[in-house]
Design a protein around this nucleic acid. Structure first.
Length: 635
RNA sequence: GGGGCUGUAGCUCAGAUGGAUAGAGCAAGCGCCUCCUAAGCGCUAGGUCGGCGGUUCAAGUCCGCCCAGUCCCGCCA
């Protein structure tokens, strides 16, 4: 095989050191879920990059030979060929429609361009064909496929990892809830999506750190502390009502009960100040959220406390927020007024300090310091993003719920004011609704998730409540299964089903099927598994059925599937891909027997065993390395 | 009033950045176990891609207008 531009050896260090300790799963999670240090030494072959590179090269050569009409060689290098998998297998394994698009610049017929490019293609072991209106179709030959399969088996848990020509240092912030109560299922979506996007970016050669911003300053924390204090006094027999805007959840009663027990046992004294109540409740809530996230197999490299932004630096006496505003002032981004620029002040309005967020695309300027001198929430947010910028990332990614889409302009300003180079990317996702079939009417009804009412299914309930019985695997799966732009209707009945209606079960079953079969082959039939892929005398893979090749091609697409999902920040594509593998595998399994062939046709048996090995490996890598699910070895 | 997102098979949703005959899973109907896990596989049926117009060789995909659903539009946190 020729040396190709993307096969350069790239070393990527990951300096995060998360652990998956304490996760109560029976199946050990792979160490590749969150590697502390990962070096991509031998990247997996991306078939799409491989073919695109070959077409690029052909375009360059053809242009230099003056065979592409009015297309000049310098323009030719700018063309990025599109490679896709055709929906009809008659059109080959991969196809390139780029000649169609080149017709205008070349002033040539698309078929003629395709023909010309085909003549310049240098692809041993790959059949090419010009077809249709100007497509180039590729059919991968067996010697090529055999090499790829062997590479898959040899790379094992590393198959799928690729290097990127432009590795970035990325900070990914997600969940970032107030530590005032249990996480809800919406938080669970961002946890699942965020952790998966982080995995995808790492597997495609980037350096990623995951961060949780703890909103632990301000009025909500005060309310939380007050609520706990009221609960404690209620338990002590005092007739006192919870204020209207307090936290009504029963979880605070449980904490109050535990506290009183500990006080009674002499383990700790009763808090005497509101601050002590706040800190106590805060600590409990944060620990609870951390535990829930860990159970959902979502780890963070940094927990960033908002309080840090409010505390004064001992040297300067200024808090990070104050320093931030000072810096904005120096750069001319602040002004003092009774209304934002372009608006008339409301009657009785007092002067406040505004930040010129409009310069960065916001619809109006925003207040950072109120008339009474206190800071707005935005001020802390700006200070936070200034901190991120100063930490030296190339790119900041924030995952937010759709209710926050109005913050995009503000956040762009918060980053843009401090650095024109750091890229801020805000991913907005739609919400999750829970549905349950009413046992009486048989109709699906929404389970409300309001904190006010007692009728509340938290993320925690979903993961570990045996009565609800969904668990972390199904929760992650369903929270990942839709595009971020699409809301999720989480079907609680479906998620607990142990039948194939439930795609998680289907995928788990497929992996277990591979494992069981391989175990049996090794233990009972004494078969030695090998990653050496053999061709027969005709230089062909000894396959007999179409299902074999279909499955192999599907498995070899892993690097490209990961690249596409990572670039689009679209974990749901991986869900789709995983389902497709399971379907292809079960079709293969049904048609292609192995045990009867061990004596009858050893080469074919061997080839099929390797397909099972490869399927197991790819499913394992996807489940444990990307999606953060378990991979059961038997069911 | 302004903005974000959505509208594709009876239901839940994909659709790889504009390409060849629009897909999957459920649900419905019919078949396949003396055979490695039938928790499986195959076949059938199901569509005005919300509507109208535009851009071009080509539109579910891009642009404009309209209709419907949903979320947002504080010196709150």
């Amino acid at each position: 095989m020729r040396t190709l531009p993307w096969s350069w050896p790239v070393r990527c260090r990951y300096d995060s050191a998360p652990t998956a300790a304490g996760i109560p799963v029976t199946i050990a999670l792979s160490s590749l879920l969150a590697p502390s240090t990962m070096t991509i030494q031998s990247p997996s072959t991306s078939l799409i990059r491989f073919l695109a590179g070959a077409v690029s090269e052909a375009i360059r050569r053809a242009a230099e030979a003056g065979q592409l009409g009015s297309l000049a060689p310098p323009q030719a290098t700018a063309i990025a060929p599109v490679i896709q998998i055709p929906n009809d297998p008659r059109y080959g394994d991969y196809a390139c429609p780029t000649p169609l698009g080149m017709a205008k610049v070349c002033r040539m017929a698309p078929t003629q361009i395709a023909q010309t490019l085909q003549n310049h293609l240098d692809l041993p072991d790959i059949e090419t064909q010009v077809a249709g209106a100007g497509f180039i179709n590729f059919r991968l030959g067996d010697p090529f496929l055999a090499k790829r399969l062997q590479e898959l088996l040899e790379l094992g848990e590393n198959f799928g990892k690729t290097a990127t020509p432009h590795p970035e240092r990325i900070l990914l912030e997600f969940v970032s809830a107030n530590p005032t109560g249990p996480l809800h299922v919406g938080h669970g979506r961002w946890a699942a999506v965020g952790s998966t996007v982080a995995n995808l970016l790492r597997w495609t050669g980037h350096q990623v750190e995951r961060e949780f911003y703890i909103n632990d300053a301000g009025n909500q924390m005060r309310l939380l502390g007050q609520s706990l204090e009221v609960r404690v006094r209620q338990l002590q027999g005092e007739d006192i009502a919870l204020p209207e805007d307090a936290y009504h959840g029963t979880y605070l009663i449980e904490i109050a009960q535990r506290l009183l027990e500990q006080v009674k046992a002499g383990i700790r004294p009763l808090p005497t100040t509101l601050e002590e109540y706040i800190d106590l409740a805060y600590g409990e809530m944060l620990a609870w959220q951390k535990q829930t996230l860990q159970q959902l197999r979502t780890e963070f490299d940094h927990w960033f406390s908002e309080r840090r932004l409010h505390t004064p630096d001992p040297e300067t006496g200024l808090s990070a927020i104050q320093k931030t505003l000072q810096e904005l002032e120096e750069r001319g981004f602040l002004y003092r007024a009774k209304a934002p620029r372009g608006e008339d002040p409301k009657p009785g309005a007092e002067e406040a300090v505004y930040f010129k967020t409009q310069e960065f695309g916001d619809d109006k300027d925003r207040v950072v310091q109120k008339a009474d001198g206190s800071f707005t929430y935005l001020a802390a947010d700006i200070a936070y993003h200034r901190d991120k910028v100063k930490r030296g990332y190339h790119r900041l990614i924030n995952i937010l719920g759709s209710d926050h889409h109005g913050y995009v302009g503000r956040l762009n300003a918060a980053v843009g004011a401090f650095s024109p180079d750091v890229k801020l990317e805000i991913l907005i996702g739609q919400f999750v609704k829970l549905f349950k079939t009413d046992p009486e009417t048989g109709e699906k009804t929404e389970v409300r998730m309001s904190k006010r009412t007692g009728n509340f299914v938290s993320l925690n309930d979903l993961i570990e409540d045996p009565e609800i019985g969904v668990g972390a695997d199904a929760t992650r799966w369903f929270l990942l299964s839709n595009s971020m732009d699409s809301p999720i209707n989480f079907d609680l009945d479906l998620a607990v089903k142990q039948t194939f209606d439930n795609p998680v079960v289907y995928v788990h079953y497929s992996h277990a099927r591979c494992c069981t079969l391989l175990r049996r082959l090794q233990e009972e039939e004494k078969v030695q598994l090998t990653s050496k892929v053999a061709l027969n005398e005709q230089n062909r893979l000894p396959y007999k059925e179409p299902e074999e090749r279909t499955l192999l091609l599907r498995l070899l697409a892993l690097p490209d599937e990961l690249i596409a999902a990572a670039e689009e920040r679209a974990p749901h594509k991986i869900i789709r891909y995983t389902e497709a593998i399971a379907a292809d595998f079960n079709k293969f399994y049904d048609t292609c027997r192995i045990l009867p062939l061990l004596k009858e046709d050893p080469p074919l048996a061997q080839a099929r065993i390797q397909l099972v090995q490869a399927t197991r490996q790819v499913l394992f890598n996807l489940l444990t390395g990307i999606l953060g699910l378990s991979a059961p070895e038997s069911m």
